[in-house]
Write a protein that binds this DNA or RNA. Structure first.
Length: 892
DNA sequence: ATTTACGAC
DNA sequence: TGGAAGTCGTAAATG
């Protein structure tokens, strides 16, 4: 039994383009439409198992429809270049799939498909038409089903004659009449003005066709009658335009669209170029199940692995340890299961050495006979090439196995080479370098709740594949780091920092539980009180934490004005609530409740959950490969967003205490580091001057922007100037500033103009950096950290504007991140050199936190800010302020 | 799993 | 025409 699938290529590509988020490969080629199209195609091939497949495309701009009606498809926006550049790619991909594609001058894809379905009807071949457009419904027949995309492209809604009757009460033929009456704005088919789907359906149910409707206009009345009589000709022409032409002179025959399955190698190559990682993985997974195997993909099964299983294999371990003495580079992979390395299970490890790959589970590594291997792991002078050695370091440390001597890290390198590429999985990195052969973790372990450690054989093979991949990828990445000028950044900053971070994390921060619990009890009382008063004012009980329920109370029950909506309902965020304050006494209570609930759930209960019962400490995990600007991030718990702005929240900091009696918490933070960085990289003389004289930068900005003297700057002027300075750092827009200051956009625009008038060097920098981003496709920080901005040339204003703000912000935020990282490396050295007992505990973007014994207090008060200020020499001085106290709260 | 809201710099 | 502030992580509700 034959089965045909006929796809409207243009229509699906369009749908995919607008439904998918923007996606580009590293060459800057947009790929989202191709991606959406491909996932749909793969799904169709798998589910429908067709014998024949065709993708039809529109050819050229002028079709026979324009002969009678030159306005056809008029007024349509030009296809954006982000989409049009994807058509050739899509056509190439179809070749790799081995799928036929037709286009014929003067005809649209619809007509080609219409002609083929006529043949299918005649021959009685079961056929599925796939389109993003309901126009195709006129082709439905007992043999022909039409599937229309719904929500993006992944879901299809199929129509048979029965379903059409059920849903519209129309035959396929009548669908043409429907369009004749109501028209189609997207094709510029007029129809009858004022007649929409509702009216058109009513008329057709009554009279059956356009012709019959027009013959019976005397039976109609009112406005509708007038309109229809006035636009009879339009209706007739619209029906003609909407009719798919089913007699296209096609030379091809059924055999020309026969589909014999794709050839894996060609497809894999195409996916690789497009950087469709997940699809590539799917292809490789499918290969094991009898699908076409991609050429050049060496399955893990074929890797020779030396499995070391307990002391029965002591001889193999000896062989490994011997191989590790060869002075060559060795690959190491440690598998830690779970996101949090402080509580992760170490499943095992693999070492690539001497042309072999050895692998073992944790049991074996911990056995007495493995001591020589553990010595190698602990030896800082035995260089290791690894993947996420930071996580490995922590996970092993908690098992009592020290790891030192990371000399290369594939994950860290992948991050520097493209920090916006969210997942630097080994599978993905290997693929990018054309070294496939690492199964995705998901395929080996399953995902989410279904996580399961496979049998030892499979596990060790997987670990071995990773260690092998690490060793082969590292030299390639090293070249790339060299080429992009990030060699030094990698070896002298990021790699040393990763070990320093691990040390800080293992040290942990002591938490005074009783302090948190007391605060929690206080919050509990406040919350209970707020809840009772809110229920009373609302006249009912509800879940205040539910934005949905809260919205219903505020806007439906109490009838407060709707300020803003989210895509799912009413917005109830703080900004909205603040605007509603004048309308109802319940609002301040809700704001207060929100504040207390946040502190309770996130900072009291959340933090308490993370405290280790044995040590009373929290051990955060600083992630070095997440933030696109080069900043660190902090997890489990996040110690970079502990409250400080409001006093109620700030009290949380009283719970962060030194881990030794009589010690102090010492915190030092950079003063205005981002604006100082801006002064340096923009070279703006006035801004530099301000910092050289260590002026209050917001006051100084107010003086210059408002043209007044220092004495004339009032609190409000300073506040506005401060907002402008923030805006400058973020890549300003008048709208953003107007929102922030709650002033009209015009005024905000004026502020910005005045600012740029005064700080012309800054203005110049903002223009230059955008131009540079357009020219190079990326921006860099002072230490050559790089961030690609493929969207900088987008035609969509929003997308392009976002990229432009990123271009302005990233060098500033990123350079600040570079500087504090440098300071951390220097501080670590200083502490070691002077053999101090003081410990670095935390980094909070512009702040470093230490615990310090009393006898080192005076020294550290000098050393820390001095080291931070001299981490790098800029055209303006850097400055760090220092404070200390018996807890983090007091270090202010 | 996604959305909303909110804490930090 | 309007769009529309940079970087993160966590908790709770809800699909």
């Amino acid at each position: 039994m034959d089965k045909w699938i006929l796809i409207d290529g243009n229509s699906i590509a369009n749908r995919a383009f607008y439904a998918m988020p923007p996606l580009t490969n590293s060459a800057g080629l947009h790929t989202n439409a191709v991606y959406g199209f491909t996932t749909m195609l793969l799904k169709l091939l798998e589910e429908e198992k067709p014998t024949h497949v065709l993708v039809a495309f529109d050819a050229g701009k002028i079709t026979f429809r324009h002969e009678g009606y030159s306005e056809y498809k008029g007024g349509r926006a030009k296809t954006p270049s982000e989409l049009s550049e994807q058509f050739p790619v899509m056509k190439d991909l179809l070749k790799a799939f081995g799928i036929a594609q037709f286009e014929l001058a003067g005809y649209e894809a619809d007509d080609i498909i219409g002609t083929l379905t006529r043949r299918a009807d005649e021959q009685g071949v079961e056929t599925l038409v796939v389109s993003g457009d309901k126009d195709m419904l006129q082709l439905v027949s007992p043999k022909v089903t039409v599937a229309v995309t719904r929500k993006g492209v992944s879901e299809l809604e199929k129509y048979t004659p029965e379903e059409m009757a059920e849903k519209y009460g129309l035959t396929p033929q009548q669908f043409i009449d429907l369009k004749g009456l109501m028209g189609d704005a997207s094709d510029n088919i007029p129809g009858i003005p004022g007649v929409g789907e509702k009216t058109a359906l009513k008329l057709l149910h009554e009279y059956g066709s356009v012709e019959e409707v027009l013959a019976h206009t005397h039976e109609l009345k009112g406005k509708m009658k007038e309109k229809i009589e006035a636009h009879k000709d339009d209706a007739i022409m619209s029906k003609k335009l909407a009719t798919i032409f089913r007699e296209v002179p096609l030379e091809q025959e059924a055999d020309d669209i026969r589909y014999g399955g794709y050839e894996g190698a060609a497809l894999a190559e195409a996916f690789r170029k497009l950087e469709f990682k997940s699809l590539l993985e799917r292809l490789e997974l499918g290969a094991g199940e009898g699908g076409a195997a991609a050429e050049g993909v060496r399955p893990e099964a074929e890797l020779a692995v030396v499995a070391i299983k307990g002391d029965a294999d002591a001889d193999k371990l000896q062989e490994l340890v011997a191989a590790l003495q060869d002075g060559a580079e060795h690959g190491l992979y440690v598998e830690a299961a779970g996101e949090n390395p402080h509580i992760a299970d170490v499943l095992g490890l693999a070492v690539a050495a001497g042309g072999q790959v050895y692998a073992m589970t944790l049991d074996t590594l911990q056995a007495p006979f493995a001591e020589p291997l553990r010595s190698w792991l602990a030896d800082p002078d035995k260089p290791k090439f690894g993947y996420d050695t930071h996580k490995a370091d922590l996970a092993l440390a908690w098992q009592g196995i020290p790891l030192r001597g990371a000399a290369f890290d594939v994950q860290l390198a992948a991050y520097l080479l493209d920090p916006t590429d969210g997942s630097q999985t080994l599978t993905g990195v290997a693929q990018r370098y054309g070294l496939p052969g690492v199964q995705p973790d998901e395929a080996v372990y399953g995902k989410g709740a279904k996580f399961k450690v496979p049998d030892e054989e499979t596990l060790l093979r997987h670990l071995a594949a990773k260690a092998d991949a690490v060793l082969r990828i590292a030299p390639l990445q090293r070249d790339d780091l060299e080429k992009t000028g990030m060699h030094k950044l990698f070896y002298e900053l990021e790699l040393p920092l990763s070990r320093i971070l691990a040390g800080m994390e293992l040290q942990g921060v002591k938490v005074a539980k009783e302090e948190l619990e007391a605060l929690g009890a206080e919050l509990e009382r406040g919350i209970a009180d707020s809840v009772a008063r809110i229920y009373e004012l609302a006249g009912t009980e509800f879940n205040i934490n539910s934005p949905k329920q809260l919205g219903e109370i505020l806007f439906d029950k109490l009838g407060l004005p709707i300020v803003k909506k989210t895509k799912t309902g009413y917005s109830t965020d703080a900004e909205v609530l603040e605007r509603l304050e004048p309308y109802h006494d319940i609002i301040p209570l809700i704001l207060h409740f929100r504040q207390l609930a946040k502190l309770q759930s996130t900072y009291v209960e959340g933090l308490l959950k993370e405290v280790r019962p044995d040590t009373g400490k929290v051990h955060t995990y600083f992630r070095q490969t997440i933030a696109a600007t080069g900043r660190l991030s902090s997890q489990f718990p996040n110690l970079q967003n502990i409250p400080i702005r409001l006093e109620e929240g700030r009290k949380i900091r009283k719970a962060f205490v030194p881990s030794e009696a009589g010690w102090y918490i010492l915190a030092a933070d950079y003063s205005q580091i981002e604006l100082r960085v801006l002064a340096h990289i923009s070279g703006d003389e006035r801004l530099k001057e301000a910092f050289i004289h260590d002026m209050d930068i917001h006051t100084k900005t107010a003086m210059d922007v408002f043209g007044v003297s220092a004495e004339q700057v009032d609190a409000n002027m300073r506040r506005q100037a401060k907002a402008v300075n923030f805006g400058i750092v973020y890549g300003i827009s008048d709208f953003g500033l107007s929102q922030n200051l709650n002033i009209p956009r015009k005024e905000a625009a004026q502020f910005i103009e005045q600012y740029f008038d005064v700080f012309q060097g800054v203005k110049q920098y903002m223009d230059d950096i955008k131009m540079q981003a357009r020219k190079d496709g990326y921006v860099t920080t002072l230490l050559e950290r790089r961030r690609y901005l493929p969207d900088i040339k987008a035609s969509n204003f929003n997308i392009r504007s976002f990229a432009e703000r990123t271009a302005m912000n990233t060098p500033i935020q990123g350079t600040a991140a570079d500087i504090i990282k440098l300071a951390m490396v220097r501080m670590d050295e200083a502490i070691k050199d002077r053999k101090l007992k003081s410990r670095m505990l935390l980094q909070v973007h512009d702040e470093l936190v230490f615990e310090v014994p009393e006898e080192e207090l005076e020294l550290m008060k000098q050393l820390v800010p001095q080291t931070m200020a001299s981490a790098i020499e800029l055209d303006v001085p850097l400055k760090a302020d220092v404070n200390y106290g018996v807890n983090w709260y007091e270090a202010k």
